[in-house]
Amino acid sequence: MELPQEVIDEVTKRLRRVEGQVGGLIRMVQDGRDCKDILTQLSAASKALEQAGFRLVASGMTYCLEQPEKASADGYSLEEVQKLFMKLA
């Protein structure tokens, strides 16, 4: 399945944000920052990863609904995309 450029851009932006958050988390742990602060940032990074995954699944579902035969031939039947969604849920 080919992702639309807007989806690629959006997911890349989210992943770069997570990348920065993880770097910040590493520094926080190494610096002995307060546990509550670390967990708050960890939660934000986790949420950003979830959002990136949900955006990918939403794009896959759109693809399946708009082009069901092509999607199925590419290995992205609606059932397969639903299974991917459940992995994130």
Rank of each mutant, 00 (worst) to 15 (best):
M1R: 06
E2F: 11
L3A: 15
P4N: 14
E6T: 12
E6R: 09
V7I: 15
V7M: 06
E10I: 00
V11C: 12
T12Y: 10
T12R: 14
R16C: 02
R16V: 01
R16H: 10
R17N: 08
E19V: 04
E19R: 12
G20Y: 13
G20E: 06
Q21Y: 04
Q21C: 03
V22R: 02
V22F: 08
G23L: 11
G24H: 02
L25Q: 04
I26S: 07
I26Q: 07
M28Q: 13
V29H: 09
Q30P: 04
D31C: 07
D31E: 15
G32Q: 12
G32H: 10
D34Q: 12
C35I: 11
K36R: 11
D37K: 13
L39F: 08
T40N: 09
Q41K: 10
S43D: 08
A44S: 07
A45D: 05
S46Y: 05
K47A: 14
L49T: 06
L49Y: 09
Q51P: 00
Q51F: 04
Q51H: 10
F54V: 06
F54A: 09
L56C: 14
A58T: 10
S59D: 11
S59F: 01
T62E: 11
Y63S: 02
C64L: 02
E66Q: 15
P68N: 10
E69K: 14
K70I: 09
A71F: 03
D74S: 13
S77R: 04
E79I: 00
E79G: 01
Q82C: 01
Q82G: 00
K83E: 11
L84V: 03
F85E: 03
M86A: 14
M86Y: 05
L88Q: 05
